[in-house]
């Protein structure tokens, strides 16, 4: 029985980064090319299996001949391109982007990698003054586009607001939302195509929302949890994790991570079982497996309670 595997031929492009020359596959982004060479560039909104939206502006690098810095996550390499990922301009921009974010958003639960970048750049979240208190629930969502009330500038405006809990599977804590668009992309054409959420409002009041901010159970949400899976700042959090964190019983050092296969339909989705004290506390899927690309459905993501009971 013969079989087949698709093969493709890849051309390469030569570029110079931080003074050293190397080649990378044609069509790569600056970020991909740099990462394949082991060069570090911080990212926040970028996720390898979503379309780059280049909104966080953390991955900006200097490209010779370009008036402004360019987003490495989405700019494709060109022959002879000269890139600097560590110049003073780049460092200054990086630090400010992180400080603007940290001053306005609760970034207390982010990846170790991002925490390290914040430390490295000595990010001071109070650099623009003490942080403003949370808004009332629904206040930010109903602010009319193009209008705001000017304060006295002594408190740095924030996106803080109460946590939204409207179903048993995941919570939305938009105080932690950096507007990376990842959840919208995962809910949209990049994966789930359910389109339950979108960007609403404008400017600093822009926010992720259902239509008219209706609770999730009234929305188109199908609880695949893919938005939660891609959220980089834990603005979206599984309810079990949220409750355990509230009860201070969430302890990643006591958790095991085991890869297995979903017990439901015959597609064979890879699951990563996060277990603590012999209970499943979270289910994710590996981003780099081409069956799921990190995405699951409601059964695979949440349908494990029968095993915990």
């Amino acid at each position: 029985m013969s079989n087949g595997v698709a093969v493709s031929i890849q051309r390469t492009v030569k570029i110079t980064v931080n003074g050293s020359e190397f080649t990378a596959p044609e069509g790569s982004t600056i970020l991909q090319a740099c990462r394949s060479e082991g060069l570090e560039i911080p990212t926040l909104c970028y996720l390898e299996n979503l379309t780059p939206v280049n909104t966080c502006r953390l991955c900006m690098v200097e490209v010779q001949g370009s008036r402004t810095l360019v987003p490495s996550c989405s700019r494709k390499i060109e022959p002879g391109m000269v890139v600097n990922t560590e110049s003073d301009r780049v460092q200054a921009s990086r630090k400010m982007v992180l400080e603007l974010l940290a001053s306005s958003v609760d970034m207390s639960i982010v990846s170790d990698e991002l925490s390290e970048w914040m430390e490295r750049h000595q990010v001071d979240k109070e650099r623009f003054g003490p942080q403003a208190l949370p808004a009332q629930l629904g206040e930010r969502e109903t602010t009319h586009a193009g209008h705001h009330v000017r304060g006295d500038g002594t408190l740095a405006a924030t996106v803080f607001e109460p946590v939204k809990i409207d179903n048993d599977q995941y919570v939305r804590d938009y105080s932690r939302c950096v507007l990376c668009y990842r959840c919208v992309e995962a809910c949209g054409t990049d994966a789930q195509n359910t389109f339950a959420i979108a960007l609403g409002g404008r400017g600093f009041e822009a926010h992720i929302t259902t239509e008219y901010d209706v609770p999730l159970p009234e929305s188109a949400c199908v609880y695949c949890g893919n938005c939660v899976a891609v959220c980089p700042t834990n603005a979206l959090m599984f309810k079990i994790e949220h409750d355990m964190r509230q009860a201070q019983t969430w302890d990643e050092s006591r958790q095991t991570l085991t890869r297995t296969i979903c017990p439901y339909c015959g597609v064979g989705c890879n699951l990563e079982i996060h277990a603590q004290d012999n209970k499943i506390v979270k289910v994710t899927s590996p981003l780099d497996h081409d069956v799921t690309s990190g995405m699951l459905c409601v059964k695979g993501r949440f349908g494990f309670e029968f095993i915990n009971s």
């Binding site: 280049n54 909104t55 966080c56 502006r57 953390l58 921009s93 400010m96 982007v97 603007l100 974010l101 193009g146 209008h147 705001h148 950096v178 507007l179 960007l199 409002g201 404008r202 400017g203 600093f204 009041e205 822009a206």
Partner: peptide, 10 residues
């Protein structure tokens, strides 16, 4: 501040 689309952090 009122006319920024809100897309990018800077």
């Amino acid at each position: 501040r009122e006319e920024s689309c809100g897309q990018c952090v800077p």
